[in-house]
Nucleic acid binder design. Structure first.
Ligand SMILES: [Mn+2]
Ligand SMILES: [Mn+2]
Ligand SMILES: [Mn+2]
Ligand SMILES: [Mn+2]
Lengths: 151, 151
DNA sequence: TTCGAAATGTAGCCAGGGCTTTATTCCGTG
DNA sequence: CACGGAATAAAGCCCTGGCTACATTTCGAA
């Protein structure tokens, strides 16, 4: 080891270092469900607008090819969030619809908070699409509290 | 179509619907670089603490098995962010070190902003690990402005 | 100086989430 | 009511990012 090497162990930084694996695993987990959340929310939108969600529309809104959307729908069905029959539209289960509502509301709160702290609406809308999936219930409540106090 | 079906086309909602594919693609892109950002920042931490980043330490901090860390390091090397020789520690390139610094600073700002709007520090630290990767430069500047105005 | 434990590398598996290409089904129109 | 175009499904490819199992190298202690 070179003579000017930093100390091998610093109890101060080691405390936060120990917590890192859990933080990262939590972030990975959130990212794994992010896609499902976006699909469910968006399928809810399509159903509200058109009465049903067709695979072609889902693919177009997500900006993916239709086989990609079909695969995603399969995962949603496997998770009990959606139902569909061959060559028919996709619909949400009770669980799926409830999740869609929660996700939509959280999205709105995140955008509102970003705007409230000075982020341009357009940018807020863009960034919120990714941020929302990492906002825990505790943070969401804090956001709502802040918005209430400000409004 | 059932008689009570919603209208097929609502120009108001269609406006936001048209923008959605780009939003989602942007979020997917951000998520693709998120892992690299976390690795680079964390490798920078290890180098600062120990003078080098060993694969075993990287794996432990990320909460993954060591071959997973090895693969990630390969990607970092391919992206020109890190260098290493077989059975030796991992080091950051100039680009890698610069990215690590940016990422570390952004992480700090995000945590500070969350705390400033009322999120408990512990929760802020957890959520920031995922949120940070979706915070654009514009949003980051807004965060800094808000923190300045408040402090 | 040797040798065994620990670190690192390699191979190969899996699931997720993209894609293109090809087959099948549906449905509005003629 | 038949048919052709559009929608859907199915098959199969790629890359990422996890994993386990096994091979190789390093290095400190005996
Ligand atoms: Mn989203
Ligand atoms: Mn959303
Ligand atoms: Mn992170
Ligand atoms: Mn971070």
């Amino acid at each position: 080891m070179p003579p000017d090497a930093p100390p091998t162990c610093d109890p101060q930084t080691d405390l936060t270092a120990d917590a890192q694996p859990d933080r990262f695993q939590r972030a990975r987990e959130a990212q794994a469900v992010a896609l499902l959340e976006d699909y469910v929310e968006m399928i809810g939108d399509l159903i509200a607008e058109h009465g049903e969600a067709r695979v072609a529309d889902i693919a177009q809104r997500m900006g993916v090819a239709h086989p990609t959307a079909t695969k995603a729908v399969s995962r949603l069905k496997r998770e009990g969030l959606a139902v569909s029959r061959p060559y028919r539209g996709v619909f949400l289960t009770e669980d799926g619809a409830a999740l869609a509502d929660r996700v939509r509301q959280r999205h709105r709160v995140v955008v509102d908070l970003l705007v409230a702290v000075g982020v341009p609406r357009e940018t807020a809308e863009l960034d919120a699409e990714g941020i929302e999936h990492h906002v825990s219930d505790a943070t969401l409540h804090a956001f709502e509290g802040f918005l209430d106090a400000k409004g």
